[in-house]
Design a protein around this nucleic acid. Sequence first.
DNA 1: TAGAATCGACAACGTGGTTGTCCGTACAGT
DNA 2: ACTGTACGGACAACCACGTTGTCGATTCTA
Lengths: 188, 188
Amino acid sequence: MIEPAASPEPAGVPESAAPGAATAGSAAMTEPAGVRDAPGYELPLLLLANFRALIDQLHAELADRGHPEMRPAHGFAMQAIGRDGTTATELGRRLGVSKQAAGKTVERLERLGYVERVDDAHDARRKLVRLTPRGIDALAQSAAIFDDLRAGWAARLGPQRLRELEAALRTMAPERGLSFDMAAWFGA
Amino acid sequence: MIEPAASPEPAGVPESAAPGAATAGSAAMTEPAGVRDAPGYELPLLLLANFRALIDQLHAELADRGHPEMRPAHGFAMQAIGRDGTTATELGRRLGVSKQAAGKTVERLERLGYVERVDDAHDARRKLVRLTPRGIDALAQSAAIFDDLRAGWAARLGPQRLRELEAALRTMAPERGLSFDMAAWFGA
DNA sequence: TAGAATCGACAACGTGGTTGTCCGTACAGT
DNA sequence: ACTGTACGGACAACCACGTTGTCGATTCTA
């Protein structure tokens, strides 16, 4: 126990496992017994570190392309809004948060000019949240940047290893949709 | 563009990539040209989903073992505190947040009984933050649970594929230490 | 038509993060 | 030795994100 966490000095990390597996033979050998497995806590740290790195790179590039005020949460929310638009309540359902929380997010997105709210002609209770052209652009840029980022991974790992990585992550990922209540989930 | 995000109904997801890769032959063939690569946005989603799943499983198990009030942020903070203890300021540095933020975290950890603060005998300015026995226990349990969780991955993917997965993530992970200002990073 | 469900808004609150300020202690240079 | 600077901790004000609870208005349904 006592992991290195985020210490600049990894302190107690067993640097052991990591070397081989260059082109990934993936042969079903009988476990050489000499290989020391990574400690269990490293896996979540690796997942988080790479997620953050990807999102940070996305936003660095997004800032260069005219969207410096965008935050990770905004992108996910805008994805969930989609080209057809939705209501705050439905957005809350999609993001896995309360309608009030979704409403606040919409408010912020509106202030930033990524979204606009219009009355629903067919239901006076509802207010449709729609992406503005600026919002659409941010989403389009994001998709393009993510593809570039993935290409970067393919270049470093090789296309095949990347596909295997994605496949492995896909088989382990829970089928239930992700919730994006990051702040509350992590801390509260 | 327009990703599914967390929508219960994937809405616009190209269901294409995902099917096969059951046992992963992983032969180094020359790119059949017929394989359609996953869209770039899927990778971060997979990383996040698996990270969350792992942490959620950890905390479900932790709750069963006598630590139901623990939150993800607490675990990371306690790791950073370590067995030797630290000061709030130093903790802030390790977690990549301000000393005030670290101080608040310590306060809450103290209320929960995971940490205690004692005056430093050699420096009247400092107050040492130390794990209580309960804190040590939480950390020890966490390490054990993470190992179990990793064993579960090894069982589903095979030990070799898991090692390759970890290796790939290790090569792509930024060497700079992770920051754990999750809430602010994601949303603010 | 009356009752139930839904949407949006508002309030109060907890948590985590930020900056800025201030005070007391430690250390180092003159 | 003393004085100036650096450091640690505490406080206040603020923002972002999430929560629950309430409430009025509208729509749907029995």
